[in-house]
Amino acid sequence: MTPTEFRSQIARLTAQLAGRPLDAALDDWLNAEHGAGSPTYQQLMASCQAGVADGWLCDREGGGIRYGRIFRPADDLHGFSVDVVDMQDIAGPHHSHPEGEIDLIMPLDGDARFDGRPAGWLVCPPGSAHRPTVSNGRALVLYLLPQGRIDFTR
């Protein structure tokens, strides 16, 4: 797996998300069509694990969290940026999502949960905010942010 192959994989997914509202219906659809155990989920998880192992994902560290923005928003990604974090039993910095956020939760050990959710997708609507928290183990979380918009709370 290379960053170029990963970008193509993400672009195929974001093509299905383009123009859709970030809401509970999208959360339900993603979990039904691309949820834990699906080919898409398994491929994305394998790609993220390979990227972390090879050092091109989660290439920064701060406050006990490994993270990194691998792709800025672009036309081929349908306006989404792509970040991946590696977290274990920790809460990250509080932030809001002006345009919303789509998260892919990939537990690596235990019954890891992200904001209380198990393996699968979590869609945060525009204007939502949280302190992203992984509990009960370690997880990778892939973030898709429309236009790369995220506002960290001071």
Rank of each mutant, 00 (worst) to 15 (best):
G55Y: 11
D59V: 08
M45P: 02
R66Q: 14
D83G: 14
Q42A: 15
G37Q: 08
A46K: 12
Q42N: 13
Q42Y: 09
D86L: 12
A91I: 00
A50H: 15
L44P: 00
D83E: 12
I70W: 08
F80Q: 01
S38Y: 03
G92A: 15
I70Q: 11
W56C: 06
A36C: 10
G37A: 15
G79V: 00
G35Q: 03
D54I: 04
G35M: 04
P73E: 03
A91R: 07
G79F: 02
G62Y: 09
R69W: 11
A74C: 07
I65W: 04
R69A: 09
Q42G: 14
S47A: 14
F80C: 02
G79I: 04
A46N: 09
D76P: 06
G62S: 13
H34A: 14
R66I: 00
V82K: 00
V52F: 12
A53V: 08
I70C: 09
S47P: 02
G68L: 02
R66V: 00
L77I: 01
Q49T: 07
H34K: 10
G55C: 10
T40Y: 09
R69F: 05
L57A: 07
G92F: 13
G79L: 02
I65S: 01
S47H: 09
G55P: 07
D54C: 05
S38P: 06
G37H: 14
Q43K: 10
A46D: 11
A53Y: 09
P73I: 05
D86Q: 12
H78K: 12
A46L: 13
I65P: 02
V82I: 07
V84M: 11
P73D: 07
G63M: 04
V85M: 13
Q42E: 15
D54M: 10
G68V: 02
G55I: 04
W56D: 07
L44A: 00
R66N: 05
I90T: 13
M45D: 14
I65L: 11
Q49N: 12
M87A: 14
I90Q: 07
A53H: 10
S47E: 14
G35H: 06
C58A: 15
Q88Y: 08
F80V: 02
G92M: 01
D54P: 04
L77S: 03
V82F: 13
L57Y: 06
I70L: 11
A53T: 13
A53G: 12
A91G: 13
S38M: 09
S81H: 02
Q49C: 14
R72M: 08
C58D: 04
D76I: 02
S81K: 01
L77H: 04
F80T: 04
Q88D: 11
D54R: 12
V82Q: 02
I65G: 08
A74R: 09
H34G: 00
G92L: 03
P73N: 07
R60P: 02
G63P: 04
G64F: 12
Y67Q: 00
A50S: 13
A53Q: 14
D76F: 05
V82Y: 04
I90P: 09
